[in-house]
Write a protein that binds this DNA or RNA. Structure first.
Lengths: 235, 235
DNA sequence: GGAATAGTGTCTGTCAGACAGTATTGG
DNA sequence: CCAATACTGTCTGACAGACACTATTCC
């Protein structure tokens, strides 16, 4: 066993996901990811995920690093956004500067929050070429988020703190790219207790019945595993 | 952004899981994890997960590091074992030597393979105190493996390459700690196509009907997501 | 009242789990 | 034939999904 530090580049990269505008046709306005233009070599001028080095003096742990990156590079309010570690991507070939390991975090935030941040929000289904292996990383993150969306309340973090059930269902349909039966969706949300009704909270405005407002239940236990759509069963 | 390497300790720790002997009573002989006695400070003399530094010159990526650690520290044959990244554990406090990040890998191997390796196989349900935060890491790994066992063929890697359906069911029951209906288990295994029958392969010996031998289907697509036991639905 | 969207009730095919029944071996 | 374990068939309650129905607002 060697005792000196290994000559390894360790960074943190963040994939911040949100919903694209596209309000006109249904099921458009799907998932988007925020990218920045690199201002130095390698891959100068290309789009890349925001990332940075670990500051051992300031960051309590790697999630701290991720929050700092999102705040510094994107100007994102350290407010209500979901952050979770995806894993590590590593290898001798992925960075021309040498053997590199990157801890990947992904974040989810409401479109309104992301709109005020730096960077470009691009569709994950029509990604431009990205620096390093960031294209593959985004693909992995999207796969993970879509899988989680099917059995958790993770999609709720793409909406403002207060939202209606039809709005939430719309988000699930955009993220999953598939229609969900209204009745089934409501039954699930009800029994899963992932969200809670806001007493006397209603969204009015349209010329139709007002919708009950909800919020995510239980800030702490924010992520639970209840099925929202059933995975297909037969081969 | 700084450009010199950050003063961060980056290591890889491996949690090698297998089944404990305990053949007498049913549902005993559950999951075990392999630990080594630390031969230097910090935590000298305590049990710890096998781990090591990344060798940028030799390791193509971090999974290479993990395989090397399992081979060097445990003498494990680089043969048929399942290896997957769990994530990174990091922080200023977890290693007395300084800010440290550890990439955690977990491996599954048949008991026969593990028996010939170095280290102690201890029950994950009665862990001794472990060095660093390895106790928490093992708990996380076990949670992950149990979750995956419920909807994948991951438990098959705890058996030799050839096994019978009753043997596989027994493994699932040990890992999950719950009885599975025989008929349901077989229907799932059949439709999921996670395993395939070995033509004319039978295990004889008992004074009863011989059992068909199976192997894991498709070495490459080794892990698939088919439910083996249904998650509970009602609250 | 009509349009529009929010929200609920009901029906039906299908599946998970329970359990009983059949198959095949050694003694 | 018996014991023991491998394997299969069938029944039933419950749920997912489909779809029709009611509720409530603005005009």
């Amino acid at each position: 066993m060697v005792t000196e530090f290994p000559p390894v580049i360790l960074t943190v990269d963040c994939a911040l996901l949100s919903l694209l505008p596209g309000d006109e046709d249904p099921l458009s306005g799907g998932l988007g990811v925020v990218t920045l233009t690199r201002d130095k070599a390698p891959f100068e001028g290309m789009q890349a995920l925001p990332g940075g080095y670990v500051f051992a003096d300031h960051d309590k742990d790697l999630s701290d690093t991720a929050r700092r990156v999102l705040a510094d590079k994107l100007g994102l309010d350290p407010g209500r956004f979901f952050l979770e570690q995806m894993g590590v991507v590593s290898g001798a070939e992925r960075d021309p500067r040498g053997w590199a390991a990157t801890v990947v975090y992904y974040a989810l935030a409401p479109a309104a929050l992301v709109a005020s941040a730096k960077g470009k929000l691009v569709s994950v289904d029509a990604l431009p070429p990205l620096a390093f292996d960031h294209g593959q990383i985004v693909a992995q993150v999207v796969e993970r988020v879509r899988a989680k969306a099917a059995y958790s309340n993770i999609a709720g973090f793409l909406l403002p703190p207060e939202f209606t059930l039809p709005e939430l269902q719309d988000v699930y349909e955009r993220v999953l790219g598939q229609k969900i039966d209204q009745s089934v969706f409501r039954k699930r949300m009800d029994e899963a207790a992932l969200i809670e009704a806001i007493p006397d909270g209603f969204r009015t405005g349209g010329r139709h019945r007002p919708a009950q407002l909800y919020r995510l239940a239980d800030e702490g236990a924010a992520l639970q595993d209840r099925a929202v759509v059933q995975r297909s069963r037969r081969k």
